[in-house]
Design a protein around this nucleic acid. Structure first.
Length: 274
DNA sequence: CCAATTGTTATTTA
DNA sequence: ATAAATAACAATTG
C-alpha cells in the first residue's frame, strides 16, 4: 500500500507512543521482515527504552529511542502500523509489537515485503541518512531531474519515476498521478522529453507530493481517520482502479496496462505517445 | 486454478 | 561494462 504520504500517516499513528517507555518487545522470530535485523540486540536494547520521537522520509520510517537506539520500519507492499489497547492479543501477521503501559504499537505485514531494522549508535544509521533528498526539498531541482532523465534515456518515463534514488517516496499510483497531470504518456522514453516537458514533470512531482501529504498525512490540516478518505475526486487516484473509470479532466475512458513492469493507468485522451 | 496487489532486489538479457 | 527487462519474494482475495 504505502507510498510517501501513507508512510507518514502510519508514522503518525505510532506518535501516540512518544515519551513512553517500552515494557516489552514481541516479535515473530525468523520471519522475513527481520532479514536485515539482529532481533536479539533489538529485544535487548529496546526493552526499557523510551520512544523519544520519529520521522519519515521516502518510504522509510525512523523511530528514535533513549540509549542511542534507532528503529527503522519499511512497510513494503502490505505493511501497516496500528495502535492497540494494552490487552490486545497479536494476530497472525502482527510480526512486531512494542508494548507500552497504555498501548501496544503494532507492525503488521501479511506479504512481508516490508522490514524492520535496528541500529545502536550516537548518530542515525546510513540506511536513513543515505535516502535521496526529498522531492519537496530545495535539492530536488529541475536540472537534477533533467540530468537523471538523460542517464535513463532508454527507459519509459513511468519506470524512471519509480526509481527511489531520484524520486524518493514515489510509488505506482503517485507516478501515474504525476504523468496524468503532466499530460505525459507513461511509455514515453525518458530521453525524449522536451525541456518544457521536464519542467512540467518537475512541477507536478512537487504538486502530487504536497497534495498527497496534505490529504493523506494531514500536513497543514486534519489527519484523516482512514487512509485516502480525503483524496479529492479531481485526482486520478479515485478513478484509476475502477473498471470503466473515466478521466476526471476529459471524461474519457481510462486505460490500464503494464508499463515498466507495473500496472499503469492513464488517460489516452490526455496523454499521447506522439 | 488463474490473475491481481500503492515494493524492492537479484538475475538475466540486450 | 552499463542499463533495461524480468523473475522472485509471500499472502491473500476475487
Amino acid at each position: 500500500m504505502p507510498e510517501l504520504a501513507e508512510v507518514e500517516f502510519f508514522r503518525k499513528r505510532w506518535s501516540a507512543g512518544h515519551g513512553a517507555k517500552v515494557l516489552a518487545v514481541r516479535l515473530h522470530e525468523g520471519k522475513k521482515v527481520f532479514r536485515d535485523c539482529d532481533t536479539g540486540e533489538l529485544r535487548r536494547r529496546l526493552a526499557g527504552a523510551k520512544l523519544l520521537g520519529s520521522a519519515s522520509a521516502a518510504k522509510q520510517m525512523l523511530f528514535r529511542f533513549s540509549g542511542e537506539n534507532w528503529l527503522g520500519i519499511h512497510l513494503g507492499m502490505s505493511g501497516e502500523t496500528r495502535v492497540e489497547p494494552p490487552d490486545y492479543v497479536a494476530t497472525k501477521h502482527d510480526h512486531f509489537i512494542l508494548v507500552q503501559k497504555e498501548r501496544q504499537l503494532v507492525f503488521n505485514d501479511p506479504r512481508m515485503f516490508g522490514g524492520v531494522r535496528f541500529h545502536h549508535g550516537k548518530a542515525a544509521p546510513a540506511w536513513w541518512t543515505k535516502i535521496a533528498p526529498a522531492i519537496l526539498s530545495p535539492a530536488f531541482t529541475m536540472e537534477a531531474v533533467a540530468d537523471f532523465l538523460r542517464r535513463r534515456a532508454r527507459a519509459p518515463i513511468k519506470a524512471v519515476l519509480l526509481m527511489q534514488e531520484r524520486f524518493p517516496g514515489i510509488g505506482n499510483w503517485m507516478a501515474d498521478e504525476i504523468l496524468w497531470r503532466a499530460a505525459l504518456h507513461p511509455k514515453r522514453l525518458a530521453g525524449s522529453l522536451t525541456t518544457a516537458e521536464v519542467r512540467t514533470l518537475h512541477r507536478e512531482c512537487r504538486f502530487v507530493c504536497r497534495g498527497a501529504l496534505k490529504y493523506n498525512a494531514g500536513v497543514g490540516g486534519p489527519l484523516p481517520a482512514r487512509l485516502n478518505e480525503l483524496m479529492p475526486a479531481s485526482w486520478l487516484f479515485n478513478h484509476r482502479w475502477e473498471d470503466g473509470g473515466r478521466c476526471p479532466r476529459t471524461n474519457q475512458l481510462l486505460v490500464r496496462e503494464e508499463v515498466g513492469g507495473r500496472t499503469t493507468c492513464w488517460s489516452p485522451a490526455r496523454q499521447r505517445l506522439r
